Amino acid sequence: MRYLESRKNLTGSACGIAGIVLSFTGAAGSLWPVIVVALYAAGALIAPPERPPAPAFPDAAEQLDALRSDFTTLRAYLAEVELPPAAAGRLSELDTLFEALLEPGWVSDPDHLHMLARAVRQDVPEAVDTFVRTRWWSRVAPGSEPPERHLERQLSALHEEAGRIAAALQDAEAIRQEAHTRYLEERGKS
């Protein structure tokens, strides 16, 4: 069925019809079936190839909705994990920052969205899971650096990264506000 609607078949059919018209005018003579088939084949060969449809990737709003859902899943996971007070406090700050950034209408830049997705889907779960696993081993074989320090450093680095996104959004809104003020002032002078 796909071939019947293809460019190759349609072009070949148009050329084949031209061959039938030639046979009715008498220009093809007794070889008209060969000419019709040859014209169909030539048309099918010169037709442009089919283009596959462009992939439909989710837009920023759909990605943000999926990320919010993943953030809810991450929160449920983190609620079950026992963390030391310092790391729990740092994680709470990070959670608040993520929650603010994931509000609809704020993050639309693909790079910022990618950084948040990586943090929510990979970095935070991996940091916490590694802490939980390492903490167990450090009880068995003491003497190494406490895993709490690494977790706090990892959460601090993630907080700084999310803070840079928030600062960029704040700068963008400040520029937008200044531009609107200039526009209104210029409009008032006209």
Rank of each mutant, 00 (worst) to 15 (best):
M1R: 14
R2W: 13
Y3M: 07
Y3Q: 09
Y3V: 07
Y3T: 09
N9A: 10
L10D: 04
T11M: 11
G16E: 03
I17F: 06
I17A: 06
A18I: 09
G19T: 03
I20R: 09
L22T: 04
G29S: 08
L31D: 07
Y40G: 02
Y40E: 01
A41V: 11
A42Q: 10
G43Q: 07
G43Y: 03
I46Q: 06
I46K: 06
A47Y: 03
P48V: 12
R51T: 08
A54S: 06
P55T: 14
A56S: 15
P58L: 11
A61P: 00
D70A: 08
D70E: 11
T72P: 01
R75D: 01
A76V: 02
E80W: 01
V81W: 00
E82L: 00
L83T: 01
P84D: 03
P85N: 10
A87P: 02
G89T: 10
G89F: 06
G89Y: 04
R90N: 07
S92Q: 09
E93K: 04
L94V: 02
L97W: 06
E99W: 12
A100D: 07
L102K: 07
E103C: 08
P104G: 08
W106L: 15
W106F: 14
W106M: 15
V107I: 09
P110A: 15
H112F: 10
L113Y: 12
A117F: 09
R118G: 12
V120K: 05
R121G: 08
V124S: 00
P125H: 03
A127V: 05
V128D: 00
F131H: 11
T134M: 13
W136L: 14
S138W: 14
P146D: 07
P147V: 01
E148A: 05
R149L: 07
R149W: 07
A157H: 06
L158N: 00
H159C: 03
E160Y: 11
A162C: 05
I165D: 03
I165G: 02
A167E: 07
L169A: 05
L169I: 09
Q170K: 15
E173K: 09
A174V: 14
A179I: 02
Y183E: 13
Y183F: 15
L184K: 14
R187V: 15
R187H: 15
G188Y: 11
